[in-house]
Design a protein around this nucleic acid. Sequence first.
DNA 1: TGCCATGTTTACGTTAACGTAAAGGTAATG
DNA 2: CATTACCTTTACGTTAACGTAAACATGGCA
Lengths: 142, 142
Amino acid sequence: MSDRSYSISELAAEFGVSTRTIRFYEEKGYLSPRREGQRRVYSAADRARIRLILRGKRIGLSLAESVEIIDLYHSHGSDAEQRSLLLEKIEERRQTLKQQQRDLRAMLGALDEVEALCRDATGQTGPETATLAGANKQQTQG
Amino acid sequence: MSDRSYSISELAAEFGVSTRTIRFYEEKGYLSPRREGQRRVYSAADRARIRLILRGKRIGLSLAESVEIIDLYHSHGSDAEQRSLLLEKIEERRQTLKQQQRDLRAMLGALDEVEALCRDATGQTGPETATLAGANKQQTQG
DNA sequence: TGCCATGTTTACGTTAACGTAAAGGTAATG
DNA sequence: CATTACCTTTACGTTAACGTAAACATGGCA
């Protein structure tokens, strides 16, 4: 509940993005900090919103998608019709997130395997133990 | 171990992408199917590679990143220097994947919460129960 | 008072990952 | 043999998500 406020470069530094990025989000309507004179001043809520947007980015959502989900948090004040539509969207989103979890687990498992193969290769010969694929060995890739 | 082969539209249909997409991957050097006359003919290995690329896409990797990882599977034939560099890359990638897992769990948990709030709202009044953020209630977003 | 850090707006540039359209080859089929 | 279905290449267009640069404002400090 700290209601201190933040400058743009402060937030940019905190989240490891450029100030341009933060202004861009505003340009697109995803953010609207208050102004003091012409300077932008960000509240704790603005800050939380940025954090959420970036979290969305990290799992491959577009900004629009992130914001859509984030706004689900605020929309539960409407009527029953609205609400069921919302539940629908939630379910839909949940499905793709679950798929991502599966993909992630597969990737991590695969990395573990490669690592094991790597570490075990303390003098081995066996090259043809490939677990996954064997197409397209290329070397130069401009 | 089925070594049947596939046409481009066959694979496109199977994976739910356009033929342009598959040709694009080849254009970029990520794929190189054999030819029969001028037609592209895809092997089971080509098919597996496409599957992996798309899996990478689903978790937010760029094509280049996906391919880099995929090629880790094939590279474990080299010397010790190569191998340790590879392990480094694996560890790096594992970190970002783990971060994604955390982000995903957070998102899913959040969706569960919203859903519960939604379902419980069978006549409630409480609006100020917000768990996450409260900034920027906007309505039109062109 | 002059400079410097930090901010602002405006606007054009860039990259990835395809979409889309045009113009044509080829094999089977009615 | 013309049509249809599927393929090909070439090439320009598009969108998202910023990068980059120019030109200007402003508060604080030596």
